[in-house]
């Protein structure tokens, strides 16, 4: 068994506790999604179903943005898929630590969301499966509940940006990056710096979603270089 993090229910619970502060933010963002969907005339059912089955803020906001601006359905789908393409490398990274056969692994892979994936990162390419799944659960509940609240008119968070909540995600990713770099050595620092520079260079030219995907994959390929052992 590769999975040495088998801490049973304790891992899930610790993960859920770690995910709780983010669930509050996710809930606020979900309310704003619900309010946006209502303003676009999506009705009550569609936005809630969307949040239940897709469970992806970036993809859902992308669909709302494209359709809301009068764009076509294929443009909306393409925008959402490109944004979520980052889950491909994230899924590859956690893959060795998931359990069971292909079907169960495919299901467990659905628990990958940015914050949980980052929280479960143990450095050096290791991940804590139970912690990640645990951290996703409160955020899923908040995402679905917040969407319903927003759709049904409970606009309790008037503006996510005014409260500075939008900065929580990059701030949190930076914090985890610092932790990762303190333990990851020179290769990790070089990869991170390369990815940051590439992402910045790509933002003005590429469709949203492409910079993160392309920059991270290219930078990670630096791992092929100069393996001296």
């Amino acid at each position: 068994m590769r999975n040495e993090a088998g801490r049973g229910g304790g891992g899930y619970l610790a993960g859920a506790r770690a995910g709780l502060p983010f669930a509050l933010v996710v809930g606020a963002v979900a309310i704003s999604f619900g309010v946006l969907a209502r303003s676009l005339g999506w009705g009550v059912l569609a936005p809630i179903v969307f949040s239940v089955i897709t469970f992806s803020a970036s993809a859902q906001f992308a669909v709302a943005a494209v359709l809301g601006a009068g764009g076509g359905v294929f443009a909306a789908i393409a925008a959402a898929v490109l944004l979520n393409a980052r889950f491909l490398p994230m899924g590859v990274a956690v893959a060795p630590f998931l359990k069971g056969g292909p079907l169960r692994r495919a299901l467990e892979g659905q628990a990958v969301v940015d914050t949980s994936w980052a929280l479960a990162n143990r450095g050096g390419g290791r991940f804590d499966r139970e912690y990640m799944i645990g951290a996703t659960i409160p955020q899923a509940v908040a995402w679905i509940g917040g969407t319903a609240l927003g759709v049904l008119g409970g606009d309790v968070v008037s503006d996510v940006e005014r409260l500075g909540l939008d900065v929580i995600f990059p701030a949190f990713f930076l914090a985890l990056l610092v932790v990762e770099l303190r333990s990851g050595g020179k290769r990790a620092i070089v990869a991170a710096a390369t990815a940051a520079a590439l992402a910045a260079a790509l933002v003005p030219f590429a469709t949203p979603g492409v910079p993160v995907l392309a920059a991270s994959c290219v930078a990670a390929l630096l791992g092929l270089r100069g393996r001296s052992s």
Binding site: A93, P96, F173, A192, A215, S216, A219, A220
Partner: peptide
């Protein structure tokens, strides 16, 4: 990828995915 032993080169690339993804997310967001 799950469950199978990967060549060391592939593992070296996977190990760098986390810092690379985090850095790219920080910049874009």
């Amino acid at each position: 990828v799950g469950g199978r032993e990967l060549p060391p080169q592939v593992n070296a690339v996977i190990a760098l995915l986390a810092p690379a993804l985090l850095a790219a997310l920080v910049v874009t967001e």
